[in-house]
Amino acid sequence: MILEIEKVKNVWSDVKDILSVPHTEKQYKKLLKILDLLIDEIGNNEKHPLAPLMETIGNLIEEYENDHFIQPNAEPLQVLRFLMDEHNFTQKDLSELGSQGVVSEILSGKRELNVRQIKALAEKFKVSPSVFI
């Protein structure tokens, strides 16, 4: 156990900014950018060597959001429908999700959002990807 702590101590200064709970908006935004890069790299590949890092950073972001933002107590589909209503969007306004058939399946609950779609929705609505997970 002591050996593992020594190993961490040797690299901590290099990784502490991405492995610590963010306490400022600047730190939070930095972690969001890193998470976006990891999502692009890893996608849905749970066996990717960086998948645990992506999960850890996601948890750190969630911790910050739970303390600083009101989190919707709703399912991802309900959040999507709410945001669509707020922006007066129709199914046609969600072309980044895929074809109209794909969008229809998502909105009817027949298909779940994938990582790419979650990222696109987060960017479109200027919200954290976590609201769609």
Score class of each variant (00 low, 15 high):
Trp12Arg: 13
Trp12Lys: 13
Ser13Trp: 05
Val15Lys: 07
Ser20Gln: 11
His23Ser: 14
Thr24Gly: 04
Lys30Ala: 05
Asp36Arg: 13
Asp36Gly: 11
Leu37Asp: 08
Leu37Val: 03
Leu37Thr: 08
Asp40Arg: 10
Glu41Asp: 03
Gly43Arg: 03
Lys47Glu: 10
Lys47Asn: 11
Pro49Lys: 09
Ala51Glu: 09
Ile57Glu: 04
Gly58Val: 07
Asn59Phe: 07
Glu62Arg: 12
Asp67Gly: 10
His68Tyr: 07
Phe69Ala: 09
Gln71Phe: 03
Asn73Gly: 12
Glu75Ile: 00
Val79Tyr: 04
Phe82Leu: 14
Phe82Gly: 10
Asn88Tyr: 01
Thr90Lys: 07
Thr90Cys: 00
Gln91Phe: 02
Leu94Cys: 11
Leu97Arg: 06
Gln100Glu: 15
Gly101His: 01
Val102Gln: 06
Ser104His: 08
Glu105Arg: 11
Glu105Asp: 15
Glu105Phe: 02
Ile106Asn: 02
Leu107Pro: 03
Leu107Glu: 05
Gly109Pro: 09
Gly109His: 08
Glu112Val: 14
Leu113Tyr: 02
Leu113Ala: 05
Asn114Val: 06
Asn114Gln: 04
Arg116Met: 07
Ile118Trp: 01
Leu121Cys: 13
Leu121Phe: 09
Leu121Ala: 11
Glu123Asn: 12
Ser128Pro: 04
Ser128Ile: 03
Pro129Tyr: 04
Ser130Ile: 10
Phe132Tyr: 11
